[in-house]
């Protein structure tokens, strides 16, 4: 652990290795973003110089339109959604004290999907209705799971099991909603359900950006240190002066909102919330929820996965959720096998 101190008695502690991992991932995410801005899906290639000059308000109008109105919103969505999902996942895994306690598995993303499907299939709404549906669905599922698993305090294992049950129910509900939808709406819904950054505009980015401006300080400044203490068990954390129930409720509420707003912007992109915190933890080798490194890694993961999705098959773009799903699913199998052997699950 290293520390920066001011003469006024203020001090900030950090771990050099975690800092390196976090900034490395951030750099990778920004490089991936720059590359996406320059090349897009390969149709209208620009040089890095051209991209940078459009970003500072110069360059010809066609380039400026492509970069600022088409590619930049997509890249910004990728960066923010990756960070939001990863951060939400890191909080959940820390509170539940189990890598399986991530929003993908607990049913929050299925809840967002159900809300979005209601908006598309039953109400026939547009993209605003879809986003609102996703947020309401995620938050509603959060409340439901919390109410069902709360009994004289929250226990990680019960939360995971109830979450898995709720996921199963919601999967059924989602299937039913899809069959009720018109064929064109169903196609749109399925694309959204896979998770895609294609065609994102500033109207998709702004709500997420606002949510993150509010929620990041809540999580990183308000809860992070207490989450470290909570890892040692409720009694120990309480003995050290942590308001256990209050911190846990605030952290989980913020995480549910992050994941829901993320899903509203890009669809329930699979497995980022599960994988990013686990990878961050293995890279930093630091105990604790590793919130910032996880968020940076989530951004990098989603932006790079989107690059692959755009270019893997020429002339045929994949939704990014396909890539993260394949990578994340494989990682989950590996995780279950190794953690099982280590006796942690």
């Amino acid at each position: 652990m290293s520390v920066l101190r001011t003469s006024g008695g203020l001090s900030v502690a950090y771990r050099p290795r975690a800092l390196a991992v976090g900034s490395g991932c951030l750099l990778l995410a920004l490089l991936g973003a720059l590359f996406t801005l320059a090349s897009g899906g390969g149709d209208y290639p620009l040089s890095v110089d051209q991209v940078l000059s459009t970003l500072i308000g110069q360059g010809n109008p066609a380039d400026a339109f492509i970069v600022r109105e088409v590619r930049l919103p997509r890249v910004a969505t990728g960066l923010l959604v990756g960070a939001a999902l990863a951060l939400g996942g890191a909080v959940f895994q820390s509170v539940v004290r189990n890598p399986l306690g991530s929003p993908d598995i607990l049913g929050f993303t299925q809840g967002s999907a159900a809300g979005a499907l209601v908006a598309i299939a039953l109400l026939g709404g547009g993209s605003l209705a879809l986003a609102s549906g996703a947020i309401l669905g995620g938050v509603g599922t959060g409340l439901l799971i919390y109410a069902l698993s709360w009994r004289q305090g929250l226990h990680g294992y019960r939360l995971v099991l109830i979450g898995i049950g709720v996921t199963a129910i919601l999967t059924g509900v989602n299937g039913y909603l899809l069959t009720r939808a018109q064929i064109s709406e169903a196609a749109r819904a399925v694309l959204w359900l896979t998770g895609s950054l294609d065609g994102r505009g500033w109207e998709d980015v702004l709500p997420l950006l606002c949510a993150m401006v509010v929620l990041l300080p809540v999580v990183l400044l308000g809860c992070a240190r207490a989450l470290h203490m909570l890892e040692m068990g409720d009694d120990t954390a309480y003995a050290l002066g942590v308001r256990v129930d209050r911190v846990r409720l605030a952290a989980l509420a913020a995480a549910v909102l992050l994941v829901s707003f993320g899903a509203a912007a890009a669809g329930p992109v699979a497995f980022v919330a599960l994988v990013a915190p686990q990878l961050a933890r293995r890279l930093t080798k630091a105990p604790g929820p590793n919130l910032l490194p996880a968020a940076c890694l989530g951004s990098a993961l989603l932006v790079l996965a989107d690059l692959v999705a755009q270019r893997a098959f020429t002339g045929h773009e994949l939704p990014v959720g396909v890539i993260t799903g394949v990578l994340g699913g494989g990682y989950l199998v590996w995780l279950l096998a190794t953690e099982r052997r280590a006796g942690r699950i």
Binding site: M1, S11, V12, R225, L240
Partner: peptide, 14 residues
């Protein structure tokens, strides 16, 4: 971690 009750966001490691 035992120092937690003596610390704060701006006083993390005196």
């Amino acid at each position: 971690r035992g120092r937690y009750p003596h610390q704060g966001v701006l006083r993390q490691w005196s």
